[in-house]
């Protein structure tokens, strides 16, 4: 099988245009605060953050494939590694690791060593149900769902992983430092692989 491309996203991140993480952190904080004011219910905020993440994920995958030079992944295992090692590094400048695989290789955990979203953050008692970083789970879910769609119009020279399969996943938080845990752990569960239908219609 072809190599998966870079083993880490360091070089790619170094070539990306970058901004101060504090601008990013504070802007995210302002977003969450606005959602809490508007929606009032913590559950609704979780949902909205996930939706925003999903919207980002389905767009971000284009840039990821174009800039990462990642070639086709053979299985979900490799895909998860690429997300953790290349994806997180490339966009957020942090690395994540993949652990806790289940026996059939369809469910794993992505553990974040560092998380730029949560600087300066402490959850007040009223927000204990809040998954502050829920946007991340949405991003992963969205990106995996769009994997194939992107490859259909990417230049042929860019090898992409899983050409004709869309990955439906469920992403849930297992551990969250803001809630008193010792790390950030996202469980990514592959629910099904949906073969894409050809040919693509122009209006899709």
């Amino acid at each position: 099988m072809a190599p998966v491309g870079p083993r880490s996203g360091d070089a790619i991140f170094a070539n990306m245009e970058r901004v101060n993480a504090e601008l990013f952190t504070l802007t995210y904080g302002a977003t969450v605060r606005q959602l809490l004011t508007d929606l009032e219910e913590v559950d609704e905020v979780n949902k909205q953050l996930d939706q925003m993440g999903y919207n980002i994920g389905i767009r971000l995958v284009d840039e990821f494939l174009a800039k990462s030079n990642v070639s086709r992944c053979v299985d979900f295992k490799e895909t998860a590694e690429v997300i953790a090692k290349v994806g997180f590094k490339m966009f957020l400048g942090v690395t994540a690791s993949v652990t806790n695989w289940d026996a059939d290789g369809t469910c794993c955990s992505i553990v974040l060593e560092d998380n730029p979203l949560v600087d300066f953050v402490e959850l007040p008692d009223t927000c204990q149900g809040l998954y502050y970083c829920n946007i991340l789970s949405g991003v992963i879910r969205g990106a995996l769902e769009m994997v194939s769609n992107t490859s259909s119009f990417a230049q042929p020279s860019i090898p992409s992983f899983l050409w004709d399969v869309s990955l439906k996943t469920e992403v849930t938080w297992i551990r969250d430092v803001l809630r008193g845990d010792d790390a950030y752990e996202l469980q990514v569960k592959l629910v099904k692989q949906v073969p894409e239908e050809y040919p693509y219609k122009d209006d899709e």
Partner: peptide, 24 residues
């Protein structure tokens, strides 16, 4: 307190900002 030297990609910020605008 962090030194403030950490960075994220401009894309990450742009995506987030775009969502902030769209939500609003």
């Amino acid at each position: 307190l962090s030194k403030g030297k950490q960075e994220v990609s401009l894309s990450a910020f742009a995506f987030l900002f775009s969502e902030l605008v769209q939500y609003n």
